[in-house]
Nucleic acid binder design. Structure first.
Lengths: 235, 235
DNA sequence: GCTCGTGTAATTGTATACAATTATACGAGC
DNA sequence: GCTCGTATAATTGTATACAATTACACGAGC
């Protein structure tokens, strides 16, 4: 948690531990393993053709990512996310997202500013065309730009962690919600506030943007999406 | 990171990995190992009388705590904290501490409220007597009560993580600073705001309290304390 | 039928052996 | 003297064997 520090890049994808880690991570996020499911070292190892050692170490890293929980002498279990957890994380994120926008206003480079503007224009284009996939992609990218622009590795990492953590829930609600245009408009406002060097406004807008995103998510059925996640996870 | 999730309790202190983990953690926080120092699996293992396996797993957990960084095929290095990191963390903490105080106002139990009041009174007593050790202890406890009272495991864990992370720097500046009385007064105000169920005020006070603590730290020589940490770490 | 032990199987924890990678020392060549 | 390459040592990565712990099934006793 550690994990506000800048963790190692997961570029060691050619080590066995790295491969196990990446694959397990993908499997958990995609819902192959359901929540609270027990992951057995030997079974995973056999499935991936490696011994228990790299599996055990990958487990420790997945615990680091918050995706599993290891109970000594018992086993490793896929982390469950309660609705309260999601709510708490969104509230925390809304605070930090505001702080991030403030810092971004103070530190953003010209290149980042340009990309952010481009992102907003592109998103409006795809929104008109109804391209939901591109829209979701641009939405993710907008926030990543914001995180990178704040020029704080610690805050950036923190926010990316949170973002990933709720991805399991969020990805279900993004596409089918009709929030696209409204979200874009909010992105535009944040972008303009940063461009105008209005840190107070940027902070307030980014803060509210997160709260809106959460409330929209709840309105459009966090619970249902959540359940759907569970039911399809048997694979 | 991981680590906004509720990680396993480190109560498995009787497993070898748990023992190695706890001891290494203590050694790093106390400054036995200096920043950026390389930790070698074999050396640590021999020193503690265990094989490399539990050491390697303890390393992964320490990375989870943010105390070391592991570079594949290279080694494990004690995490360095820059002054900017400390500043960033304090700013992030100040936001979250405010949020925490707000939630605490809404969820605090009678027992927690009582302990918080007692804490404030006791701190004022020890401040008059000049008992710096007890004062530092009560200060830590005050914030722990606050974290527990917010009734969000995620926020609580997040804040405790940050708190621990800056401990290496902070412990040097707490005792010799003359901030005790002022800090106590701020604790009292926060406590009273929570008691009066004034969430807005509690949030604002807790937020400012963190900023004050940071600014005091800088004023009293973060840099010097930081350097001192380095020089004495040779052991 | 239910509860509680006991014994066996399954699983995790640790040590060790070996493979792969990286760091270091040393000398050839310029 | 400097650079580069090679050989050797040191260190990390992985597999495997064994120990310790936990889960579970089965049967005794009530």
């Amino acid at each position: 948690m550690s994990s506000y520090n800048v963790k190692q890049e997961v570029t060691d994808k050619y080590s066995l531990r790295g491969r196990v880690f990446n694959r397990l991570r993908e499997d958990i996020l995609s819902g192959k393993y359901e929540e609270h499911e027990e992951l057995k070292e030997m079974a995973i190892g056999e499935e991936m053709g490696v011994s228990r050692t790299p599996v055990r170490e990958a487990f420790r890293q997945l615990e680091l990512e918050g995706l599993i929980q290891i109970i000594p002498n018992k086993g490793a279990y896929v982390t469950g996310i309660t609705e309260k957890d999601v709510r708490d994380i969104y509230m925390i994120r809304s605070m930090l997202e505001g702080l991030c926008a403030r810092w971004a206003t103070e530190h953003i480079t010209k290149e980042q500013m340009d990309e952010m503007e481009e992102n907003v224009y592109l998103a409006e284009f795809h929104a008109k065309k109804g391209h939901l996939e591109q829209l979701a992609e641009l939405d993710n990218r907008f926030h990543d730009i914001l995180y990178e622009a704040c020029s704080s590795k610690i805050l950036e990492h923190q926010l990316k962690d949170f973002h990933q953590y709720v991805l399991r829930v969020r990805r279900k609600t993004l596409a089918n919600a009709n929030r696209g245009p409204k979200s874009n408009e909010e992105h535009r406002q944040i972008m303009e506030a940063i461009r105008d060097r209005n840190a107070d406004l940027a902070e307030q807008l980014a803060h509210q943007h997160m709260i809106n995103a959460y409330e929209n998510m709840v309105k459009n059925g966090l619970h249902e999406a959540y359940e759907r996640d569970e039911s399809q996870s048997k694979k």
